[in-house]
Amino acid sequence: MNKNFLIVYCHPYDNSFNHAELLAIKNNLNKHNIKFNVIDLYNDHFNPVYDSEELSLFHLGKTHDTLVVKYLKLLKESTDIIFITPIWWNSIPGMLKGFIDKVMKEGEGLTHTITKTGVRGLLNNLNHTYVFTTSTTPTFYFKLAMGNSIKKIFINKTLKQLGMKHAKWFNFGGITNSKINRRKRYLEKLNNLKLNLTYKLKWR
């Protein structure tokens, strides 16, 4: 089966390191002739707020947000998914949380179903999940002293609950004080990263 990646990108600033990561990963996929689509949440002007009108339409199986319909279609047509996001205040940004809250909520029957024990994910078409983050906190400190919420909650709970499989997390820690040469080396690794879970990137 031909691969069709979906990139969910969450950063408002085009000169950010996250945006440089996005360009490196897009170049990687193009280089290997892998088809992909990009959801650029800020550039799309996605509204992460789940308002009262949206909630009332939910009970009718509808939404008033055309982007939600578009995003759900992309999710179901993809074979693999990549998230690119900063870590803000030890978690994902509100914009990305709103994407999960709003799009997945409207996707009942597409992204998940409700059982007696809670949510059962239906995004089994997504064979591999990659999460690329940046943090001001060094990675080792984030993992050991700050609760490691990206791995423990976002990846191991939320994404897994939706049916996303074989998750791999890469974090560029200490971004604020990092030197240009270190950033360049990391981006070069992303350019050459084999997106099949066989390539191991050292924690930094």
Rank of each mutant, 00 (worst) to 15 (best):
K3I: 00
E106T: 05
T137S: 03
H32M: 08
K26A: 07
N43M: 02
N2Y: 04
N191D: 15
K143G: 02
G121E: 05
K76A: 13
K102T: 03
Y42A: 05
K97E: 05
N192H: 15
G118R: 15
K143N: 05
T115S: 15
G163T: 00
D44K: 09
K194R: 14
N18P: 01
G121P: 04
N43T: 11
F142K: 03
S56W: 01
K202N: 08
F17W: 10
G174R: 05
D51H: 06
T115R: 15
H112C: 07
I153V: 15
L60I: 00
L190C: 06
F172V: 11
F140R: 07
S16M: 12
K168E: 14
I7E: 04
L55I: 05
E106N: 13
E77I: 00
A24E: 06
K3N: 09
L193S: 08
L60F: 00
R183M: 10
P93M: 11
H45G: 04
L126M: 10
F170Y: 13
T133G: 03
E21D: 01
P48V: 14
W169P: 10
L190E: 11
P12A: 11
A167F: 13
E188F: 11
N4E: 04
F83K: 05
T176V: 07
V38D: 08
S149W: 13
H11R: 13
G107D: 06
G118F: 00
